[in-house]
């Protein structure tokens, strides 16, 4: 043992001091407001997300207020998480043949991949911007047509809830004709 044993048993002190220096520096910097803090004062402060952010879905509406969805179930077919449940029915509107009597998305199952948006042939389902979800019951995360098309969070957000069939881009045409939010432009 002797000398070497003693040194060995005390060597951790240097490590501790080094660590404490880093912690202390950050502590002092943050205390006087010089630090580059990664945290923000949520919910008063919010981050700006990309326009490509994929949050809770939106069911688009036609200008008469009816939803654009035709219940073709391509979104449900394409969904890797199997979270979309649709029951199709004959529409009460004589001009519309088929519509979804039930359109439910289980947000807890959903992986927000956006495949439903890709699959939709009529631009009826889009990925929205909302990401704040808190409910008391699991059942409340299964959201239906009313929530998906008319929830209060959609007001004033950077997303159009209106179905725009004239902006659907045909194959071969230049997509430059599509508006700034060309994310929603579809190849038909």
């Amino acid at each position: 043992m002797g000398f070497f044993g003693k040194l060995e048993s005390k060597s951790y002190i240097i490590g501790i001091l080094k660590g404490l220096t880093i912690t202390g520096t950050h502590f002092v910097k943050n205390l006087v407001g010089l630090g580059d803090r990664p945290t923000i004062q949520y919910p008063e402060q919010r981050r700006k997300y990309s326009d490509k952010f994929m949050g809770v879905h939106v069911l688009t509406k036609k200008h008469d207020g009816e939803i654009a969805c035709t219940a073709c179930m391509l979104c449900a077919t394409n969904c890797p998480a199997e979270c979309i449940h649709i029951v199709a029915a004959q529409s009460p509107n004589p001009k519309v043949e088929k519509y979804p009597a039930i359109y439910e998305i289980d947000l807890l199952r959903c992986v927000f991949c956006g495949f439903c948006e890709d699959a939709c042939p009529v631009d009826a389902v889009r990925m929205g911007r909302d990401y704040e979800m808190a409910e008391l019951s699991e059942r409340n995360f299964v959201v239906g047509i009313e929530y998906l098309k008319d929830r209060p969070q959609l007001q004033g957000k950077n997303i159009s809830v209106f179905h725009e069939p004239d902006k659907i881009v045909k194959r071969g045409e230049k997509s430059a004709s599509a508006p700034a939010g060309s994310k929603f432009a579809k190849a038909s």
Binding site: T70, A71, C72, L74, E97, V122
Partner: peptide
């Protein structure tokens, strides 16, 4: 070509 609403699709 209304395949989305056609049962035969």
């Amino acid at each position: 070509i209304d395949c989305p609403i056609c049962d035969q699709a």
